[in-house]
């Protein structure tokens, strides 16, 4: 039996995390490019038009993955923020802070693509529907988290205050997810769930899953890249940063 164990705490040291992230980013970026190419090819060329919505439904291939990502990234950000708040692990704070801009970006994209899909199908870009409104609140939570971080000069106080906001805001995620069941909304219910078979053609849900994986790979690559820059800023006086400055390119 192998006695090799992964030393997880080894990577909570900034220098080790920095090196590991540097090695992982190209792999995740490449996977993201391949999966996006596959997803776009299947979604725009191979999948047939919808029998009711025609080609307008093709927005689903980005709308659903980015909407899922917005919720997943918020929960992940809150978990990291909570770990940073409770156990004072600096790398958890760095990760939470690095996730926020990408989470905000995906939330904005979910709202944007939803609005553009709403116009041909509902006849309006926006309604104050429970799903749309709770997703908009998610965007404000991401922006609020980033604004709070930027507004407080002391790094530890900024991390603590924004972590509390992130944790309180988690309550909004189940509200977004179940809003279509709890309230009578214009937004349709879930087409793909963990407990039931998808209610759409195989090519459609497979493409959605591929695009979702592509978004995950993209998110991991950009969050790790942002975390590396954040580490460099925080650890700029450390000896290992000086060593990397001599041996690496920007």
């Amino acid at each position: 039996m192998s006695r090799t164990r992964i030393q997880w705490f080894h990577f909570t040291a900034p220098a080790n995390f920095y090196d590991l992230a540097g090695r992982l980013i190209p792999a995740f970026a490449l996977l993201s490019v391949i999966l996006f190419a596959m997803g776009l090819y299947l979604g725009l060329w191979v999948a047939p038009p919808d029998y009711q919505q025609g080609d307008s439904y093709r927005i689903i291939y980005i709308h659903v993955p980015v909407a899922w990502m917005s919720m997943f990234l918020y929960v992940l950000m809150a978990i990291y923020a909570g770990i940073g708040l409770i156990w004072r692990i600096k790398m958890a704070e760095v990760m939470a802070k690095s996730i926020a801009p990408t989470g905000a970006l995906f939330t904005f994209l979910a709202l944007w693509t939803g609005a553009l899909w709403g116009r041909p199908t509902w006849g309006v870009y926006w309604v104050w529907d429970a799903r749309l409104t709770s997703e908009l609140i998610l965007l404000f939570l991401f922006l609020g988290y980033m604004a709070l971080h930027a507004a407080i000069e002391d790094r530890q106080r900024a991390a603590n205050a924004s972590a509390v906001l992130a944790l309180v805001g988690v309550v909004n995620v189940p509200i977004i997810y179940f809003s279509v069941q709890w309230w009578n909304t214009l937004h349709q219910g879930a087409s793909i769930t963990v407990t039931q078979a998808p209610t759409m053609a195989t090519i459609m849900w497979v493409t959605i899953l591929i695009m979702f994986l592509a978004c995950w790979m993209y998110s991991i690559a950009v969050v790790l890249a942002r975390a590396r820059t954040e580490i460099l800023e925080r650890e700029r006086r450390a000896r290992w940063v000086q060593e990397r400055l001599e041996s690496e390119k920007p």
Binding site: L40, G54, S56, L109, W112, L116, P120, T229, P250
Partner: peptide
């Protein structure tokens, strides 16, 4: 199928914001 402004408007925005995010990350680093 006549829905190009909404379909391409969605895909173009996705491409645009991800390109800006990557460019901003590179610039900052």
């Amino acid at each position: 199928g006549g829905y190009w402004p909404w379909v391409w408007g969605s895909y173009a925005m996705m491409a645009g914001v991800t390109a800006v995010e990557i460019a901003q990350l590179r610039f900052r680093r």
